[in-house]
Structure formats: structure tokens, C-alpha cells
Amino acid sequence: MSVFSVLTAAIAPGVALLIYFYLKDRYDTEPIHLVTKVFLFGVMLVFPVMVLQRAFVHGLGENPFVFSFVISAGLEEFLKWFLVYFIIYKHTSFDEPYDGIVYAVAASLGFATLENVFYAFLNSASISSLIYRALLPVSGHAMFGVIMGYHLGRAKFDPQRRTRHLIYSLALPIFWHGVFDYILLTTKTYWVWFMIPLMSYLWIRSLWKVNRANAKSPLRVVHPEEQVKI
């Protein structure tokens, strides 16, 4: 494959997923320049993560559990959470619960996209391997972003449960990302039997969270007949 073909195949899944979740915002789509900015910040996170992960591997070893939940999931999700929380959480554009999903997914997919580009060129990846990565690592990062963003949105617009949802916004992505990595590290030959149910569950839950976040938008107009049902 040509360099352009490989680059396109590596970038396309992340961009496509970001557009998908961006268009799922029913009531007030976010400024494209701000979403792009967060995506690019996610891209830049790859470099400090690479350095820190190498240092952690030297210090903590390569035990599959420690690597999955601390060195990989813990570090990556914390830095993505840190980025979204300190750049976007108090921004005026973050004005409805679903916005948390948009920005967390943007940061996650920025990270996943550059990671995918590195993989494609360093491993001389084929189209089939890039399709595999689109279905698993790239979409996995999107799902972790949905979980993170959903709970950041709940934290901002549900003051009584703010602390709980802030904890969930970091702890749950780390947990599911850790489970994802642990399966791939420890089930070399039969990982598909674990991964298909896991990804199916994450997609179903993520789409539920998307609908739930939209339903809680303060910009949503509730018709009289809906108020009766509620």
C-alpha cells in the first residue's frame, strides 16, 4: 500500500467515530473548532504517554494485570480525563450533559488515531489488521470516552452527585480499559470469545448513555404529553 493509503486507513476510523458521536448531539452541537482542538490535544497526549509508560514498565515490570490496569489504562485514561476536566469542564460551551461525551470522545479518539498511525507504519500494517484495530482498539477508546464524558456531564449538571460522578468518570474508563487490555494480553488464542461480548456490552451501554445524556439536556423541549408520561 502507498503511504497515503496507509495514513488514510489509519486516520479514518477515529475521524468517522468522532463525526458519529458529534452528530448524536440533538440539541446544540459544539463549536467544531473547539472539538478539533480537544482532538488535537488528544493526539499530543500520545508522546508523554509513551515516555511515561516506558518509565513505568522499567519500574513496575510487565505483569499483565499491572500493565493493563495501571501502566496502560490507568495512565492513558487519567491523562485524557485531566485534559477534558481542566480544559473543557468549566468552559461556557459545556452547557448540557451530552457535551461531556463529545469532548471526552474527541480526546480519546485523538489519542487512538495517532496511536493507530504509529502502529500502521511501524508494523507495515495490512488493510485487514487496520480493520481489526478500527473494530477493537479505536472503537474501544471511543467507548471509554463515552463513559468518561457521560459521567463528567452528570457531575457538572447534577451538583448533589458531583463527587460520585467525578469518581465514576475516571474509575470506570480505567476499569473497562484495563479489562480490555487484560483480555488481549492473557488470552492470545481465544480472545475473540471474550472480546465480542465485551465490545457488544460497551457499545450497547454507550448508546444508552448517549440517549440518556441527550434526554437530560436543559435545552430539550418537553411537550405536554411527555410531561404526563413522566
Rank of each mutant, 00 (worst) to 15 (best):
S2W: 04
V3W: 09
V3E: 13
V6L: 15
A16R: 04
L18V: 06
I19T: 12
I19N: 08
Y22L: 07
D28R: 14
T29L: 14
T29K: 15
E30R: 07
P31M: 11
I32L: 14
H33S: 15
H33A: 13
V38P: 00
L40G: 02
L40P: 01
F41A: 15
F41V: 12
V43N: 12
V46T: 14
V46M: 10
P48N: 08
L52Q: 08
L52R: 08
R54W: 04
V57K: 10
N63T: 02
F65H: 06
F65Y: 09
F67N: 02
F67R: 10
S68K: 00
F69P: 04
I71R: 02
F78S: 14
K80N: 04
L83P: 07
V84W: 08
V84R: 06
Y85D: 01
I87E: 07
I87Y: 12
I88E: 11
H91S: 13
H91T: 00
T92E: 14
D95F: 05
P97H: 10
Y98T: 07
D99A: 11
V102R: 01
Y103T: 05
Y103D: 01
A107H: 03
S108P: 09
F111V: 13
A112Y: 08
E115P: 10
Y119Q: 06
A120Y: 07
S124H: 12
A125P: 06
A125V: 01
S129K: 10
I131Y: 02
Y132A: 15
A134S: 13
A134T: 00
P137W: 07
P137Q: 04
S139Q: 08
Y150R: 08
H151I: 05
R154D: 05
A155W: 09
A155G: 02
K156C: 01
K156Y: 11
R161T: 14
R161K: 15
R162Y: 00
T163Q: 12
R164A: 08
S169E: 03
S169F: 03
L170S: 01
A171Q: 06
P173D: 02
P173F: 05
P173C: 03
W176R: 00
H177F: 10
D181Q: 06
Y182P: 00
I183R: 00
L184Q: 12
L185A: 11
T187V: 08
I196A: 14
P197A: 06
P197V: 09
M199Y: 10
S200N: 12
L202G: 04
R205S: 13
L207T: 09
N214A: 11
N214D: 08
N214P: 07
A215E: 15
S217C: 08
P218W: 05
P218A: 07
E225M: 03
Q227F: 11
V228W: 11
I230A: 15
